[in-house]
């Protein structure tokens, strides 16, 4: 802080030039005109530079940045909305497809079930018919066999009686006896 430059301009030049005795420099009125002049020039220049050049430019820069940021934010919001819409549309198509697939599956299984049912019914009725035919055949064979058994029994009884008694019994008697046995 000490101004001790040896070659410095004479420190009290102003006071000497103004013809005042050295005093407290800030209150030395002899320096006022110079300071006023240069203050007006310097501050005037500063004011003009700031108000005409620097501040409008900075205002434009800051405004521009604000606009850019808000524009970008708006864009981002718009894109977000589009993405949401796309996601919603995708979910909707997915749900639709699922529902359609389900109905298709149900229809197919129902059709398959009814077809199987019909096939089974025809096969069952076929089998029933065959069974019934077989039953009647068996019954017929049984009746025939039973008829043969009666004739054999009658013949056997006649042969047995002839052997035992030496004379052939009458056909009526044998028939009556067989009938009597049959009913007992």
């Amino acid at each position: 802080m000490a101004d001790t430059k040896p070659g410095a301009p004479t420190a009290h030049a102003t006071q000497d030039a103004g013809g005042h005795k050295a005093g407290f420099p800030p209150f030395d009125a002899a320096t006022f005109p110079s300071q006023l002049l240069w203050f007006v020039l310097a501050f005037g220049a500063l004011y003009l530079l700031m108000s005409k050049v620097a501040l409008p430019r900075l205002a434009a820069i800051i405004d521009n940045r604000q606009n850019k940021i808000s524009g970008d934010l708006d864009n981002a919001a718009l894109m977000q909305k589009q993405a949401d819409d796309a996601a919603k549309a995708y979910e909707k198509t997915l749900a639709d497809a699922k529902a359609r697939a389900q109905t298709l599956g149900q229809e197919a299984s129902a059709r398959a079930a009814s077809e199987a049912d019909a096939k089974r019914k025809t096969i069952e009725s076929d089998l029933n018919a065959k069974l019934a035919a077989a039953d009647t055949q068996i019954a017929a064979a049984k009746a025939q066999a039973m008829g043969n058994v009666e004739a054999i029994a009658r013949d056997a009884a006649a042969a047995i009686v002839q052997q035992l008694t030496g004379k052939a019994p009458g056909a009526d008697a044998i028939a009556a006896a067989v009938a009597a046995l049959k009913t007992s």
Binding site: M1, D3, A8, P9, T10, A11, H12, A13, T14, A17, G18, F24, P25, P26, D28, A30, T31, P33, S34, Q35, L37, W38, A42
Partner: peptide, 23 residues
């Protein structure tokens, strides 16, 4: 440190105008 140092001056309208360290 508060001294005003003149680097050059003109006298106009009876006033002393100088280019100083302050300027």
């Amino acid at each position: 440190q508060f001294n005003i140092v003149e680097y050059g001056a003109v006298d106009l309208f009876g006033r002393h105008f100088a280019f100083t360290n302050s300027a």
